[in-house]
Amino acid sequence: MIAIVDYGAGNLTSVRWALDELGYPSRISSDPAEIVRADRIIFPGVGAAGAAMRHLRDRGLIEILRGAVAAGVPFLGICLGMQILFERTEEDGGVETLGVLAGDVRRFQPSYARDKIPHMGWNLVRWLRPHPVLEGISPTVFYYFVHSYYACPGRPGLTLGAAEYAGVEFCAAAACGSVVATQFHIEKSGRPGLALLDRFARWDGRERPGPARPSEERIC
C-alpha cells in the first residue's frame, strides 16, 4: 500500500487519482501508525514551508518520515514535499526543514522582467544520470512546475534532473538512497508524469541492484 502523507499542505486528491489510474492502491493518511506500515510513501505538498513544518510537527510526523527514509522505504517527495526534505529554506524568513537531503532551498531571483515568479508551466527536464525510476523514460521530458523556490543540493550527485529558469539551471529532481524527489508535479504532468509515477510505484528503493542496505547516514 502506498501512503500519501496528509499534513494539511496541498493537493492530495490529484496524487490519489493518478495512482488510481495506474491501478495502485493508496491511502491518504496523517496517521503515524499507518504511514509507518506503508510499503512506500508519497510526500506531496503545495503552500508555504513554515506552515508545512508546523503541521508535520503537530501531527508527530517528522520522526516518522525521517525513520522511513533511514529504513530504505521508497519515498517520493513532490514540489514543497521535495523542498522540505532538504536542510533549510529561505522561505518564511528562514525555516529549518527535515534535513533528509543535504542542501538548502532558495528563491528565484528574476534576471529579466520576462521571468515571472512563480515559475509556472511546462518546462523541459534533462535527466543527468541513470536511475531505476528513469528506466524507459526519455532523456528530456516536459513536466509541470509551479514554484517560487528551488533546491540547491549540498552534495554533487544528488541532482537527478535539471531544468532552466530565471537564468539558473536548477535541481528539478533529486535522488539518494530510497528517496526520489521532484520539484515538478508528477501527478499533474500528463502521460509523462504517469510514466514516472508508475516507475516509482514498482521501484524497490535501491539505486542499483544488490543487497538491501538501509542508508548509513541520515543526510544524503
Binding site: 486528491t13 490529484s14 487519482w17 493518478a18 509541470y144 509551479v146 499533474k188 504532468s189 508524469g193 504517469l194
Partner: peptide
C-alpha cells in the same frame, strides 16, 4: 470539479 479532476492529469 471532482469528476474533471479524476479524468485529467493536468492542472
Amino acid at each position: 470539479v471532482a469528476r474533471v479532476a479524476r479524468a485529467v492529469r493536468i492542472p
